[in-house]
Nucleic acid binder design. Structure first.
Lengths: 111, 111
DNA sequence: CCTTAATAAGTAGGCGAGCTACACATACCG
DNA sequence: CGGTATGTGTAGCTCGCCTACTTATTAAGG
């Protein structure tokens, strides 16, 4: 999958990954890898800044913990984040509907 | 719809619009507007450079004509463009499958 | 003991697709 | 003659994501 296709959908992916369970950054990357069947392999340089951006935006909150001597910053959705996720899901649905309409478009559509 | 969501899908839209009919740039923009119910309103600064890029890549070819005193550059798909369109449609399908999987993901999936 | 790999978090800098804001030209309508 | 619609095009910027790197701890292998 070409990497720039993600543009504008990264927030949705991160919020969705945190929906229902709190994870730290590294685990989020692994969850996305597994949840996508290996198609999504986001570099840390993409995920960590995105998480901090989401935190600044108030969509997630984080807490530090130490597990096995290693420090983890665990993220969870805020209420605003939950709302943002719903909005992202709606936007995604609208987006795919529009593109599907054009890509499937008119001509040979009835069948 | 946020504009950067288009990233990486513009070529697919343009190729799909030219699938089965040849159009000039301005008409492509209008066709996309109507075909998307107004959701897509691409500026000329996006479409014209993209068309030239597609032509350089050999995916479309163009011919000048004059209609009512105005010059038009009419584009049509090449065979390579048709193949590229098929590839784009496949890539789109894969892309949506992956994102849908994450966004719909696991937890509450088995309704 | 030392090296390597895995886990974990982070930043600096760059790239590049698409957008903004123009410029240019003709036709048509009032 | 001025404004709007049609039609094509470019220069330059923005900003989200990626590349490449740094730091640190633990566990395993030799």
């Amino acid at each position: 999958m070409k990497p720039d296709a993600l543009r504008g959908h990264l927030d949705a992916l991160l919020l969705a990954t945190l929906d229902g369970e709190q994870l730290h950054g590294y685990a989020i990357i692994e969850a996305l890898q597994q949840g996508s069947g290996g198609a999504l392999d986001l570099p840390t340089g993409t995920v960590y800044p995105a998480l901090r951006r989401l935190e600044r935006a108030g969509h997630v909150s984080s807490d530090w913990s130490t597990v096995g001597g290693r420090k983890r910053r665990t993220y969870k959705l805020t209420q605003a984040g939950q709302r943002a996720l719903n909005a992202e899901r709606d936007a995604w649905r609208e987006f795919t509907t529009v593109i599907d309409g054009v890509l499937g478009g008119g001509k040979w559509a009835q069948s």
